[in-house]
Design a protein around this nucleic acid. Structure first.
Lengths: 377, 377
DNA sequence: GATCGAGATGAATCAGGCA
DNA sequence: TTGCCTGATTCATCTCGAT
């Protein structure tokens, strides 16, 4: 089948159309789509090869489809497909685009320029991102999605209660914590290698579609890839239209969608997500001024002393380390729980650091909603 | 004091300059600033916050023509102050900008257009965000910061080890979990109302400055507000220059900074980067008898062996070279860190050469130091 | 069959000094 | 500027094979 051959009067439902993104979109009728999910090329700028500390080579994205001559070329491409996307959207429809810092600012600015109305930016926090191997930046541990309505006046769909139910009956926030697509979910070729360099996890699309579409809605993915959007749409009983120009990807996506079974019509019940256990690094207590750099700590019997550094390490003479490591070092113990080992002085009493950890967790959860916070938005 | 009155030849250190952002920046000398933190105005609906370059107030009208006009005016304003910011930055300097989905995409795209090189986008996850009262969107629970170097070729500062220490000895990620500025930290006027609508938490600036500046560096904040950047710079013993047009904010910031005490000079140090440690040639360890010529070395898995020469080279069969070169040669790797690759035997244990390097440095500084401590780093 | 350890891997703008 | 040498650097998760 071919998108270009399709008459503009009819939308080919529940198919992966093989063809160029913009050209194929031009063949589809205006206002016929309820929701778009788009995972466009990121325009990554990889210079050489990157090696892990064990000297193995990182298999990065170096595909031709991700190459653009410059930012202006990327902007032209983006403006073109986003314009077509807006034409295809129903007046109350919404679009999701996903990207990293390489391209998300171009995407967001052009969305605004074209008249889309941004509803949220959503942060996909990866539970298992690739580390920064050279120690030259912060670990790039998230990607950003922008959720936007076709117009400021669009009466868009947001399934508020479903999202709240998914989040232990607390409002769903703009930061989502989900793992990468790995293991059995990842499509592989005959050599066992990943078929597509950037396959998105099903959990991400599950939440996107559950939040912003209704049963039988039409969902378009103009960069369909391995068909994650289409598969999740079928599973959740939405209609889909995928566009993919690479024959291998399109073929794999069709097989994947065919193997997918829709959930029972009466089973739209959602599984609650696992909530993250709060973790408190000692350093965050220093940052948040629960304890001042320069504070003197000691053990219960006042045999060893240490000073708090601005980065949360402790210093004792020439020795430096985390609260746990330095405690172990000074007592010649194989390990040490710094939270209970080290004490600080307050009102003449020496209290364990654990006191502060408890206080910081309480401060986070008990904070009343104030006018300040409203203004801060 | 006034920025406009300052000669371009001299940077007024540790002051809050009262004046217009762009105009005041124009009076400062090029390349004189190590780091910039900028929290520009972005609430397009908030009258009086956003002004055109000619100082006329931008209306918050909602029809299409005015929306476009607002975006264009915002872009012009952004391009203007970011251009000045780039001129003021040292060639190896970095800039932080913070915003929400209303303006961060404009900021990011213009940063890229001006030649800044994005290093990370950082998500500030709020522990206590304002809920979405109408239930029409996801709770807007984060803001985005962009960290960028002046040029692609900038040799920017990133205190990797300090950030790792701050996060319980695991690489710091691009998503930060910190509370809003509330309680006693929040500056208030005589009526007990918040003095500034978007006062940033000190913990945020603490981490920003700890990550990307060194002691005595110069930090500029062109939208100084209540002086959080200046106060944290003073606390962490960095120099600051603040610019603020609103007299009430400037006055409050000056009082706040004056009340701030720097942490003790000997407590400001954070976990040092190994890159900045003094360089020890392996040959000097042989000369100084930390290791004997003829000693047998091997890799961790005991697959390759070598013998130490009196000049500090290693010999393995017919091959000879530095500890790095021979390690790379024998493993067919493009490069190799000989300090961690090669091991020597002591008391039945095989220890990395790095142990000896640590012991020689300790001997030089007369501080007793143990293999344990090196391991603890 | 269960457990343990080694190995593999993921949208990545990933070095710096000196001759 | 180019080229060469030194040497700093990884987290969570899954698969697979050995015990």
């Amino acid at each position: 089948m071919s998108g270009a051959a399709t008459l503009k009067t009819e939308l080919p439902l529940d198919q992966i159309l093989r063809g160029e993104c913009v050209e194929t979109m031009r063949s589809l009728p205006s206002g016929s789509v309820d929701c778009i999910f788009a995972d466009p090329p990121y325009n990554l700028q990889l210079k050489g090869e990157l090696r892990r500390p064990d000297d193995s080579v990182v298999d990065g994205v170096d595909d031709d489809w991700d190459k653009f001559s410059d930012l202006a070329a990327y902007d032209r491409f983006t403006r073109e497909w986003l314009s077509e996307a807006r034409r295809l959207l129903h007046k109350d429809g919404t679009i999701w685009v996903i990207g990293s810092y390489h391209n998300i600012f171009r995407l967001g600015a052009i969305l605004q320029d074209l008249g889309f109305w941004i509803l949220n930016d959503i942060v996909w926090r990866k539970s298992n991102p690739m580390p920064n191997f050279r120690g030259r930046r912060f670990t790039n541990a998230h990607e950003t999605m922008i959720w936007a309505a076709r117009d400021q006046s669009s009466r868009y769909r947001f399934n508020y209660q479903a999202m709240k139910a998914l989040n232990d009956d607390v409002q769903m926030r703009s930061d989502w914590y989900l793992p990468l697509c790995t293991g059995n979910e990842r499509l592989r070729n005959e050599h066992g290698l990943k078929l597509h360099p950037t396959q998105k996890p099903e959990s991400l699309l599950h939440r996107v579609l559950l939040a912003s579409t209704a049963e039988n809605d039409v969902v378009l993915d103009p960069f369909s890839g391995t068909g994650t959007t289409a598969a999740m749409a079928k599973r959740l009983r939405r209609h889909f239209v995928g566009i993919e120009r690479h024959p291998d990807y399109a073929e794999a996506a069709i097989a994947r969608v065919n193997a997918e079974t829709p959930i029972a019509a009466d089973a739209v019940a959602t599984t609650p997500m696992k909530r993250e256990a709060p973790r408190v690094p000692f350093g965050s207590l220093v940052e948040r001024n629960f304890i001042m750099p320069g504070t003197i700590l000691c053990d219960k019997s006042k045999r060893v002393f240490a000073t708090v550094s601005p980065d949360g390490t402790l210093i004792s003479g020439a020795k430096r380390g985390s609260i746990h490591k330095l405690g172990a070092l000074l007592t010649n113990a194989p390990s040490c729980n710094g939270w209970t080992f080290w004490h600080f002085e307050r009102d003449g009493n020496w209290l364990p650091l654990d006191t502060l950890r408890g206080e910081s967790l309480a401060a986070d959860s008990n904070a009343p909603i104030t006018a300040d916070q409203i203004a801060a938005q």
